[in-house]
Nucleic acid binder design. Structure first.
Length: 956
DNA sequence: CATTTATCCTAT
DNA sequence: TTAGATAGGATAAATG
């Protein structure tokens, strides 16, 4: 390790744990925490802080230790092992010290008795790496932040990742139920997440195996690259899994879904043998952190935890990282690995397992081995481990906290590293204190846009990191505020506390203060540079350095990835620091007054910029929209080239008007563009003057939202493109009418009409009908008790034709139902009237077209048998009930014609054709072939047309 | 027919 | 125990 601040992200090995804590007294929680503080005024729940122990009193049995009630911060530090008070170094705490959270009474006692006896193991210090400010390092930043000081690729920093998937046949054909269905095969694969590996072929880095319960057909089937291990019983199989985990000793265990399959299923099975899997797999034998209900884990990461190893629930990791319309394994594989993978129902898999055809068994094994290695491949391609590890280093928190904890924890951890050398102690308000804060009074500026179609260049400029810049420029911080200009309600409240400044302070400092627009007074940097300003300056500067480093190391792919992750981590902290001050609901140390100062200053900065732009004659510009930190400037009658010049001029002028580092950046030119509403606009984007082809760029509208259907996204985008390219409304109309008639004739792919929205079971009000996705999921739960959507899972559904006035919820069904039930039809008129027309109407109203009339005026022949409930009043709909019923009956007959000879029948293939087998089969095969090639064609056309892989159909 | 409530998802 | 913020648009369905 190159410097003393380097610490590993890997959990400790069993040997290390035992050598640190001894066999008999392992801490209950081995996740590495930097160090802990016990707060003084929340006796019920001492809260851990990534920082100093500054008071040790009350709470968690510690109240028996009377002598500590009056302990000063200085004294308290002594009880932390290896804390070197003289130098302020905590090097060993950052090393392999693992702390329980919070320290037990026993642990504190032991620290007490061992104090003094303990031999300190501080490493010799390199002067450039001392925490305190030096000339080279004026703010005493951790060397970790300096890209030059950190070896970008560590010799032993890589982690071993083990993927586990399991197969349990289910007799019922439903999802396997851990209470009844035994696990018969376990698949595992391990790889080394070293970022140096990117040039090697992925499969060459893996080692993999299958553990199967003895079965004749299975024993003879081999999969290349996978060792086969045969056992006699399920219990033996579980023991083999434990052996393998202990033997390979991975740092991370992963499954696509570790709650209901993979490890979660194994754990549930293990319970029936009274066998604690988590305990067996752990690195601290006999320890587990599981038990009880862990709602938080279930909703964010995983409830299954193993002491000493990280358990990743891959779908949740992906959900947090990527914006997908669904998070099925198949869809994720397609999006990330760019390949297709089939999905088989538990019923099919089970039938393969019991099949006597050897091919079936092979197929089953192949399916799962592929799945297991793809889990690792996703982790590799999406850079999950390396990215998370880099974030952990930047934030100064442990690996798992990067995934499991919120932004406050990370800001705090980072802030503390700046606060400590300054001898600042963060206060720790109680929930009540936080709740008693004043209400926020300031709001960002969001202009009402001049909604229109803009045919001349529209400039977009935004202030780069406005809030962090404001904090730096005006020195807004906890540590620089000296109160209000005028007392509020007779009090001088500041955040969660009361300010008691010495009398005469303001007089003394009156030439050295900034007064924020909300009436708070802050000292200028020459008096004291604020903690937040200091931290943000470092963050932004370091980020610039990292970005520069990226430019000069273009050839080193591994390094690029690390640097990119580092840059993103820095950006993250800078962006959420404002949020930390304004976290009024759950805040750990919020201060509304600071948040208000920032917001109001930001607002005034923007307002001033707008005034200047509007009033500067030479630009001939008009501000038509602005949101928080951005301005949209219309340059009527100017060319694209002029626009780029003026844009740069505006940016420079406004930047020069503002204190550093506030900077207005010229972002892009839209030509043409549509402003629809606040936070909703779309245009053809040019980022450079010499860009030839514009990029379709939309914000807030249906094309970028995930609560519509693919057809809606495609149609809105295509119509907009036609409008932008040709400005010919008749072409748009032609396209729309064409699409609608195809829908009415049912010449559509159901794929394009699937909604998929998040479902959060257990959070819904029972006063109103549930959202459609919830109703669909609930119905499926009745059918298959094993099925319960995970918290936040996106449940797909389509809307089918139903009786008029039937509620939408009752017409929402799972997509498979439409495919499997010939009486169910996608409700084309619902989709047209309620899903497709409204967004188009909003857009084309602005150019004077009436989209709905296009539909109303369409040749009605096609729609004669479908009264359109959405065009009628509810009363009139009732008149149509009879007709609708007839239509339904008619539809029934129409759909039920023999597939080969077209004679009416209700059996798919009529009895006559059934008896005449050979020609029927031949005809059916021809039909299947034709239909398949048709479908393939459609897919090709579809994807080539949209050009966006996101809209390509995928296996469900 | 307008307003309110519940829900979802996005912009900044 | 955990948990950045607010503003805003949109739909469905109940309510006044």
């Amino acid at each position: 390790m190159s410097n003393c601040y380097e610490y590993s992200l890997k959990p400790p090995s069993t040997a290390e744990i035992v050598s640190t804590f001894g066999d008999s007294d392992l801490p209950s929680k081995l996740y590495r925490a930097p160090y802990y503080a016990v707060e003084s005024d929340a006796p019920d729940h001492p809260r851990e802080y990534a920082g100093l122990v500054y008071h040790l009193r009350g709470g968690d049995g510690l109240d028996t230790l009377d002598e500590w009630t009056s302990a000063s911060a200085e004294e308290s530090l002594d009880i932390i092992p290896n804390y070197d008070k003289a130098s302020g170094s905590e090097s060993n705490i950052w090393g392999w010290q693992y702390a329980a959270s919070p320290p037990s009474v026993r642990q504190v006692r032991r620290w007490l008795t061992e104090r003094g006896k303990r031999k300190r193991q501080t490493k010799p210090k390199d002067p450039s790496q001392i925490d305190g400010p030096t000339q080279a390092n004026p703010y005493g930043m951790r060397p970790t932040l300096n890209p030059q000081n950190v070896p970008s690729v560590r010799q032993e920093g890589n982690m071993e990742v083990l993927a586990i998937e399991v197969f349990a046949p289910s007799i019922t054909g439903k999802l396997p139920d851990p209470a009844a269905d035994e696990v018969v095969v376990v698949f595992w694969s391990i790889y080394d997440s070293d970022s140096q590996n990117i040039n090697q072929h992925f499969s060459s880095l893996c080692q993999a195996g299958i553990i199967a319960v003895n079965k004749q057909e299975l024993n003879s089937r081999k999969i290349r690259g996978w060792s086969l291990d045969v056992v006699d019983t399920e219990l033996e199989l579980l023991n083999r899994v434990v052996d393998i985990v202990q033997d390979l000793d991975p740092d991370i265990i992963v499954g696509w879904d570790v709650q209901t399959s993979s490890l979660g299923y194994l754990d549930a099975r293990a319970k029936s043998y009274d066998f604690n899997l988590a305990e067996q797999l752990s690195r601290a034998p006999g320890r587990t952190t599981n038990g009880g209900t862990d709602q938080w884990g279930a909703q964010t990461t995983t409830t299954f935890k193993i002491v000493g190893r990280h358990v990743l629930n891959l779908w949740r990791v992906i959900r947090a990282e990527q914006n997908f319309t669904t998070y099925t394994f198949e869809y994720t594989v397609f999006q990330i690995l760019r390949k297709r993978t089939p999905h088989y129902s538990p019923h099919t898999l089970t039938s393969w397992y019991y099949s006597s055809v050897p091919e079936h068994v092979s197929r089953l094994l192949r399916y799962f081995t592929d799945r297991t290695s793809m889990v690792l491949e996703i982790i590799d391609v999406a850079q999950i481990v390396t990215k998370t590890a880099e974030f952990a280093r930047i934030f100064g928190v442990d690996f798992f906290s990067v995934l499991s904890r919120g932004s406050q924890f990370k800001v705090e951890s980072f802030m503390f590293r700046i606060a400590k050398p300054e001898s600042f102690v963060l206060l720790s308000p109680s929930r009540q204190d936080v709740g008693r804060q004043n209400a926020a009074e300031c709001m960002p500026l969001i202009m009402e846009p001049l909604s229109a179609f803009y045919n001349s260049p529209l400039l977009v400029l935004d202030f780069q990191s406005l809030y962090p810049s404001v904090m730096i420029a005006y020195n807004y911080c906890y540590s620089t505020c000296i109160g209000r200009v005028v007392d509020f309600k007779g009090q001088n409240k500041f955040g969660v506390t009361e300010l008691h400044q010495p009398p005469g302070l303001l007089e003394k400092l009156k030439d050295h203060v900034n007064v924020a627009p909300n009436g708070m007074v802050y000292v200028k940097p020459e008096v004291r540079k604020g903690l937040l300003a200091r931290m943000l300056t470092e963050l932004l500067d370091t980020r610039v350095m990292v970005k520069q480093a990226m430019k000069v190391t273009k050839d080193d792919k591994a390094l690029q990835r690390v640097l990119d992750a580092r840059q993103l981590g820095l950006k993250f902290i800078a962006n959420v620091t404002y949020g930390y001050t304004s976290a009024t609901f759950s805040g750990r140390m919020p201060a509304v007054e600071i948040a208000d100062s920032i917001v109001q200053s930001g607002r005034e900065t923007l307002e001033k910029a707008i005034r200047v732009i509007d009033s500067t004659k030479k630009w001939g510009a008009k501000v038509v929209y602005g949101d928080t930190d951005s301005v949209f400037v219309y340059l009527i009658g100017k060319t694209k080239e002029q626009a780029f010049r003026i844009g740069q001029d505006i940016a420079d002028t406004i930047t020069a008007m503002n204190p550093a580092p506030v900077k207005l950046k010229f972002e892009k030119v839209y030509l043409p563009c549509v402003l629809l509403a606040k936070k909703r606009y779309v245009g053809f984007k040019f980022e450079n003057p010499d860009d030839k082809e514009p990029v379709f760029d939309a914000k807030g509208i249906e094309t970028v939202r995930r609560d519509g259907v693919p057809a809606q996204q495609k149609m809105v985008e295509t119509c907009l493109k036609i409008l932008f390219r040709t400005q010919d409304l008749s072409r748009v109309k032609e396209y729309c009418c064409d699409s609608w008639s195809r829908m009415l004739e049912n010449r559509i792919s159901p794929q394009d009409f699937i909604f998929a929205k998040e479902v959060k079971m257990g959070t819904y009000s029972d006063k109103v009908p549930p959202p459609p996705g919830v109703a669909v999921a609930a119905r499926r739960m009745v059918e298959d008790s094993g099925y319960e959507p995970q918290y936040g899972e996106r449940v797909p559904y389509v809307i089918i034709r139903g009786k008029p006035l039937e509620r939408l919820v009752d017409r929402a069904v799972a997509p498979e139902e439409v495919l499997n039930d010939s009486h169910k039809y996608i409700d084309a008129s619902y989709y047209i009237s309620r899903v497709l027309i409204p967004p188009l109407e909003r857009i084309f109203n602005l150019v004077g077209a009436d989209v709905r009339s296009w539909y109303d005026d369409m040749p009605k022949a096609l729609r004669a048998d479908q009264p359109d409930a959405y065009l009628l009043s509810p009363r009139k709909v009732l008149d149509y009930v009879d007709l609708a019923n007839r239509v339904n009956i008619d539809g029934h007959f129409l759909a039920s014609r023999c597939l080969t000879c077209s004679e009416p029948t209700s059996y798919g293939v009529c009895m006559d054709c059934r008896t005449d087998e050979q020609p029927t089969i031949a005809r059916l095969l021809v039909k299947v072939g034709k239909t398949e090639s048709k479908l393939k064609n459609v897919h090709t056309v579809c994807s080539s047309c949209s050009g966006n892989p996101r809209y390509r159909t995928h296996p469900m």
